[in-house]
Nucleic acid binder design. Structure first.
Lengths: 121, 121
DNA sequence: TATGGTACAAACAAATTTGTAAGTAATGAC
DNA sequence: GTCATTACTTACAAATTTGTTTGTACCATA
């Protein structure tokens, strides 16, 4: 892959952190995009171009990278239809579905506490 | 603060993403350390040095930065006891407590799916 | 023959996150 | 007066993440 990192504390910390069940899970959905992508795919299958429309400013590169990573982690299934123009669909796997209720709760937390913050202007 | 970023897509994406309740919440606990710190503090108050011991390779700088950020977001309360040597305690706020059940579920997901992954060697 | 749409890939660059190393203040113990 | 302790701070550097730009393959249609 891409020139593995050596045995720094960066890596030691990474290992330490992904040994833990909690952060193992958190890392799967970490970063700027993964959670929202999974959340969108929670409603229905989406094509690459449909996903792109959901996020007005995402670059195609970012979207591709994130989808590839999610595919690697078996959270997303990619299906290519051999048509012209090409057609590719993304959908959640069963283990990704298990995240959805958690996203709901996070969302509820966000809604509630964002409102609180505003009310204290 | 530290030289604000301009009006790039990076920033536009950031805004877009923190407008969403789900990612608003996710961002509060994003990054390498915040979740684990909050999780540890879920058990009991901890001093700076106690937290440091929990994470063998974390740098003091990182720990300080994360704690400050959590304090800013009102997820952690910091209490200084005017003693010598100094004594500072960190504890969760009420809104942070609401994250704990979510962490439990994430942890359960992690436990389950880490095991699955291993069993497929 | 030229153009257009889809789903990318590659080379490059900027921004952010994380880590390293050293130093500080206060004060009591030796 | 030197040392140790705690909870940091500062200046710097490395690593990772995110974004920009340009280009590709495929074939249909004009």
């Amino acid at each position: 892959m891409t020139a593995r990192k050596e045995n720094s504390t960066y890596t030691l910390n990474e290992k330490f952190i992904t040994d833990c069940d909690l952060t193992y899970a958190a890392n799967k959905i970490g970063g700027r995009w993964k959670i929202v992508i999974l959340d969108k795919l929670g409603d229905r299958k989406l094509r690459f171009s449909e996903l792109k429309k959901e996020f007005p400013y995402i670059s195609e590169r970012m979207l591709t990278l994130q989808l590839r990573a999610l595919e690697q982690d078996e959270l997303v299934k990619r299906t290519v239809y051999a048509a012209v123009p090409p057609r590719v669909e993304y959908e959640l796997t069963s283990i990704a579905l298990e995240f959805l209720p958690i996203f709901c709760q996070l969302s509820a937390w966000g809604k509630k506490n964002k409102a609180l913050k505003k009310s204290r202007s």
